[in-house]
Amino acid sequence: MGRNAAAVLASIVGLVMVLTAFARPLEFLGTAVVDWFNVLAAIAFVLGGANLLKMNLLKISARDAGWGYSAVTVSVFLITIGVGLLKVGAHPDPLHPDVALSGDKEAVGGAFWWLYEYAMSPITSTLFALLAFYVASAAFRAFRAKNTAAILLLGTAFVVLLGRVYVGVLLTSWIPADNAWVSWLRLENLSGIIMGVFNNAGTRAMMIGIAIGIAATSLKILVGLDRSYLGSSD
C-alpha cells in the first residue's frame, strides 16, 4: 500500500514537471515543486549530518577500534555546525548592520571561512592530488599495448599528456609552425585535433546514448514501471 502510494506520488510530481515544460501557464507549479525539491535536498544534508553523528557516537560509546578518530570527526563536525550557524567572526551586512546574522556566512576572516580555507580545501585538494601518483602507478601496471584498441588508448593518452607540457611542445618544435600541411604534426596541434575531432565525436555519441538512457529510465519511473528506488517490499 505504502509503496504504491509512493510510486503514485513520484508519477504525479514527475508528470507535473513534464507538463510545466509544455504548458507555460502551469510554470508556477513547476517552480513550486522545484523549490520543494531543493528544500528536501537541503534536509537530506541535515539527515546525512545526523546520520554521521549517530554512527560516530555509537562507535565512541562502544569504544570500537579507531574511536579516537570518530571523536575527532564528531568534534570538528560540531564546531563547523556551531560556527556556521552562528556566523562566528562574520560581520553583519553593511546595509543591515543591526541584524547580527545578516552577514555572509563565508565572509573572509570568519571562523566558517577559516575552516573551509585552511582545513577543507587543502585536505580535499591534496587527496585529489594524491590520485596523480596512484593513477600513474595503476596505469603503469595495467596498461599493456596488446591490441589495436589498447594501442589507441595508450597512444592518445601519451599524445594528450605530452601536448600540454613544455617538454612535449619542445619535442616537435622543429616542425615548421607556419606550414599548414605539416604543422598539425606538432604535438600541441595533434593533441588539439584529438580533443576537437576524435574526443568530440566520442563524447557526443556518448552524450546522445546517455540522454536516451536517462529519458527511458525517467519514463519508466513516471509510468510506475520502475520502482527499484523504493527498495524491496520485504
Partner: peptide
C-alpha cells in the same frame, strides 16, 4: 575532512 565537509 569528513567532519568539516559534512558540517560545511
Amino acid at each position: 575532512v569528513v567532519g568539516v565537509s559534512a558540517g560545511y
